Amino acid sequence: MDPRSEVLLRQAGLFGGELLLAGLPADDLLGHLPQAHGWSWHAGEQAQLAARFAGRCYFGVEPGARACEAAVLFLPKSRELTDYLLASLAARLPGALLYLVGEKRAGIERAAKQLTAFGSPRKLDSARHCQLWQVRVDTPPTAPVLESLARHYSLPLSDGELQVVSLPGVFSHGRLDVGSALLLQHLDDLPSGHLLDFGCGAGVLGATLKRRYPSSQVTLLDVDAFAVASSRLTLAANGLEANVIAGDGIDAAPSGLSAILSNPPFHQGVHTHYQATEHLLRQARVHLLPQGELRLVANSFLKYPPLIETHLGPCQTLTEANGFRIYRARAR
């Protein structure tokens, strides 16, 4: 059981009615709170919850239509995303109770101050290195429009400027990260066919690929609903069309790919996870055509080449700069 869920269950008497659990972990919490339902924006956690608690968890960037008497937000990493989520929930709960739960190292005490916009928050519990806060929504906000919170910026590329639309919570919100900037400089000579942007974020790489290789089919894949929505906005802002899908890792990708390109993420919340990237390297060959190519950027300290060579083929380092390397390999 996630420690945040354990803290909630210490106060289970507060949560007997129609409760919305926003950003809930994929554990047994819904089993302990039979009248509760969930809202998830993580495709992997959503899939696990849907398998165990069919029909009780909604996936998307908005809370969904189902009514609730109270809500709990599991604190996300991004402050901007927390602002949006709290406002979205508080707008639905005038005069009702809104709870915030999170780990101390994730900044729960700082985040609790964001509750003061709606009323007078109070701390209910502190255990398992987590805290639980409560506020009665005496000052409900207007429901926020997610797209109005987007950050827009332009990238000067060799074939013209690319317009990027970044939503709260998306990796490298409102700016181009160093790794992606390096990868954008090494997109030449890709095989024609079906190209995949794995871990698409705001859609910078996928949109660039579609514009540079217009005759190729391009798919953008991310585990996060806000990244999927952001990628669609970036494509639309540049008059481009591509397939954008939500899925938990490379297993959700189509087969018959001519190339997989990625600036793979290795953070989930405040935790560091390499499993998704390592699984990508192990399974890329299953999704690539013979001689299909994997091209990715990674921190120089990550020991990916042996894994690539074991599961795919000889690994070539195309360049190294600013603590990052670009790797290329072809499926045997």
Rank of each mutant, 00 (worst) to 15 (best):
G269R: 15
D159G: 06
E69K: 10
Q283A: 07
L98Y: 07
G119D: 07
L288H: 12
T310H: 13
L30E: 00
C130R: 11
S230Q: 05
L30N: 02
L30G: 03
A112Y: 06
A225T: 02
G95L: 03
L86S: 03
F53A: 07
G44A: 00
L75F: 05
A246D: 00
D248L: 02
K210M: 01
G44L: 00
L132H: 02
P63Y: 11
L296S: 09
V244K: 09
A26F: 01
L205C: 01
T208I: 00
A276G: 06
G193H: 07
D197S: 12
L289E: 15
F171H: 09
V170T: 11
A237R: 08
A36D: 08
E6L: 15
P168W: 12
S158W: 04
A225R: 00
R175P: 00
A54R: 11
L240V: 03
P314F: 13
F324M: 09
E6G: 14
A259K: 02
G17Y: 06
H152T: 14
T277H: 02
A143V: 06
L261I: 08
R136Q: 14
A65R: 08
G249E: 02
A127C: 09
H267V: 13
R128T: 10
S172R: 08
R151D: 14
L195Y: 04
C315Q: 03
I326K: 11
V170A: 07
A12L: 09
Y213A: 10
L195F: 05
G201E: 12
L307V: 11
L85H: 09
